[in-house]
Design a protein around this nucleic acid. Sequence first.
RNA 1: GCCCCUAUAGCUCAGCCAGGAUAGAGCAGUGGUUUCCUAAACCAUGUGUCGCAGGUUCGAAUCCUGCUAGGGGUACCA
Length: 556
Amino acid sequence: MLEQPLHEIESLVREAILAAQDAGDLPSFDLPTLVVDRPQREEHGDYATSAALQLAGTARMVPLRVAQAIASRIPKTDFLAQVEVAEPGFVNFTLDDGWLTRQVDEILAAGESYGNVPLGQGQKVQVEYGSANPTGPLHVGSGRNTVIGDGLANVLEAAGYEVQREYYVNDAGTQVRLFAETLYARYAQALGRDEPIPEDGYRGAYLVELGDEVARQEGERFLEMPRREAVNALYEIGLEKMLASIEDDLTMLGITYDRWFSERSLYDSGVFDHVLAMLREKDHVAERAGAVWFVSSELGDDKDNVLIRSDGEPGYLASDIAYHYDKFIRRGFDRVINVWGADHQGHVPRMKAAMRAIGVDPDSLVLIVYQLVALRRGGELVRLSKRTGDIITLREVLEEIGPDAVRFFLLGRAADSQMELDLDLAKEQSSENPVYYVQYAHARTASILRYAQGTDFSDGDVSLLGHPAELALIRQMLRLPEVVEKAATSLSPHYLPYYAQDLAGAFHPFYKQCRVVSSVPEDMPLNKARLKLVAAAKIVLARVLALMGVSGPESM
RNA sequence: GCCCCUAUAGCUCAGCCAGGAUAGAGCAGUGGUUUCCUAAACCAUGUGUCGCAGGUUCGAAUCCUGCUAGGGGUACCA
């Protein structure tokens, strides 16, 4: 498989600078990080470096002369047609047309693996995402979480990491207990009892339905047992049903996990006690006012935090430390990436401190904090809360807009950006979603290949390609590995939808301008070459769609 | 109060990490395109105090400081 031109050029530039230094054309200095990237304007070539501008100061030379010193030492290669110096000191690189067309064969040979890059070297990475409390249906915010997490996991896999996808099930602690208490009340109400829901209970209608359902299925038997026992039993039933519903929603979104990790299991397996003892032993713990505190202020946090509350219940920080101990120490992940909503950002310094406390490099724990999704309905801002029951469920949006559009929309923004989703507007405009533009390009490739069934184009000669629209398409196809690498390095899956649009945006004009399956017999050689190009384009479109978790339809 | 994120075209957003060449895309708007592979397409066209004010630099949307506005956090909830 081909080395990426970008990296090739980086080495060529580096070697050119070193050679120029040896020859005395450039003074000697240590090389900074050299940046080669894609210029904004087409006439500046495929790649460009501003290295000369960067170095002009240290070299005490005019930038243009530095650029010339570099450009003149870039050797002739098969993939570069042109190396140019441009004002005020850029070196621009243009890919060779013949080399470009040959990449079509390379992509066909690579097949589904096209786009993979050898970055991770098999490092073990866990991506934990979703992880909404199993106390209610998933809302749109969880949708953003899972779409980012899953997209990231896909990209990291393509970049050569060994990725494990995990959902942390908060099946212990205050919130699920409150959930079970509420379910008990709704269940009793369904059977005609006057049972108020707890003060801070979950008010959503879904629990009324769940109470009804349990009453229908289980009858009155829970009313006959001691209340505490009944609540425990309902806890198990409710948890199972909520998890099933969450899993259903995620399946609809096309998301499956390698593992659902139970918080409760940390207590059952003894990991929790072990970690707490360890923290005590290492003197990271203090008792104050009847509670047990994690002295995180000594480990870089701005304050201490409660581990065990004065009522004897562990707080969620405590189990989270045990959970991460399990991830790093027991399961041996090299890196753990957690996707968190902005409402958890205060938890970041605590967990970093916790990593120091358990002897893990804090940098190997990466927290992707995404800004919360603000929802609007008919111009009204909707506040989301499972407890008040005011939620817009992920399922509702999935059913209205469809999983592909939801994925594309939620993935297409940087995690940092605060997005506002107007449901009414989204429903209205979902037919304008650019996802269909990309999918349509894929459907068109499929359509052409169907139409040409019976034509064996395996002997197609790609050197016949050369139409500007063909070359533009190949250029976009070649960006996939760069995009994967960039997204994996910066943990930013939002690059994918932008790239997908660029790729489709090169395919559609090609389709319009270049007739692939022509009825004129003399066109056969070109037909075959173009069929190769279409088959390769289909591979690339399918791959980028798959990385986003969006389907690639054969027809639309 | 303190901490984190954000402010770029009418709307929704890229670009900021690693400063560079006339700041980009989609949607919306306007005009046009169909003798063979799907018009969910193509072609053409307008749009900017890059929140404000300073600073650093040969060069700032990008880095630094202050300010303004919005979102989030600052619990013995998660």
